[in-house]
Nucleic acid binder design. Structure first.
Lengths: 144, 144
DNA sequence: TCGATTCACTTGCAAAACACAAGTAAAAAT
DNA sequence: ATTTTTACTTGTGTTTTGCAAGTGAATCGA
């Protein structure tokens, strides 16, 4: 439950500030799950990718919630489950994640991307932004 | 001199791949120095910002060099000094850093940016890209 | 209805990364 | 010749991470 972050407010540089919030190995992957992969539950995120540790996931969800990047509601089908989703602030990271993803793909062509996200790596930024934000809005209309 | 990275090749996801390379607190700040701040020497980077540890700086320069994001030449005025600079691969991070910087600035308005970089936060992406790349080319013509 | 399972976390501990201070060797300045 | 500068390295303690094993409440299945 440590809320202390060694790098908080390290600098008046906006890049450093951004890295204080999202500059670790896991935070952006969690946001990616919420943004692109349709994974909104703790368990789904745990099972996804390469296996984040449960304590790290818990810690990052807590930090993201307290910095108001994400929020959660109880799952309609179960009281113990939660549905996490991106706030507007969290959604505003879309351009960052898009550029990082495009860059990562350019560096390592062996990477795989689900077909419905292929266009993220090739199409125009504005088109991608619209598509993603639309899909998030759709989800919100169903669950919020 | 540890070259091991616990997160290398964690995933076939391009975002995860990108984070394996630049997803720590210091790497992007070093690249920012080379890209925007005109800091090309070890000592300048050490003195900059909030104080990176010398061993961490050394380690990151080594990693960035081995992943061919940066390279170095001996300083024309001194044999023991080095001039670091971005390779094409390193320069290709410009859109990523630009978006992160813009995002960081939007989150924390109290951040300060040197005047000649103000337009990074407001103007068009393409204009900024040209300006930055031109300034890097200019530097290269002088020192390489 | 009642034990088994699922879920969202905690806890404990070892390993890795990091920060800080001090040191080093070669080059350059005095 | 001595001191200072530069680009690192080394040592040590602290913080963060990864992994395995809980935990307690909710839900399932018989």
């Amino acid at each position: 439950m440590s809320t202390k972050n060694q790098h908080q407010d390290r600098s008046p540089c906006p890049l450093a500030s951004a890295l204080d919030i999202v500059g670790d190995h896991w935070t952006l992957l969690i946001i990616r799950d919420l943004m692109f992969m349709g994974r909104h539950e703790y368990k789904e995120m745990l099972e996804a990718w390469e296996g984040i540790s449960s304590n790290i996931l818990s810690n990052r969800l807590e930090k993201l919630t307290s910095s108001q990047m994400i929020d959660s509601v109880p799952h309609p089908e179960s009281k113990r489950r939660k549905l996490y989703y991106l706030t507007e602030k969290g959604k505003s990271l879309l351009p960052v994640i898009a550029e990082l993803t495009i860059w990562g793909f350019a560096q390592k062509k062996s990477n795989k991307v689900p077909p419905h996200l292929k266009e993220l790596l090739t199409g125009s930024r504005t088109k991608l932004t619209k598509k993603v934000l639309n899909s998030l809005t759709k989800w919100e209309k169903t669950y919020l």
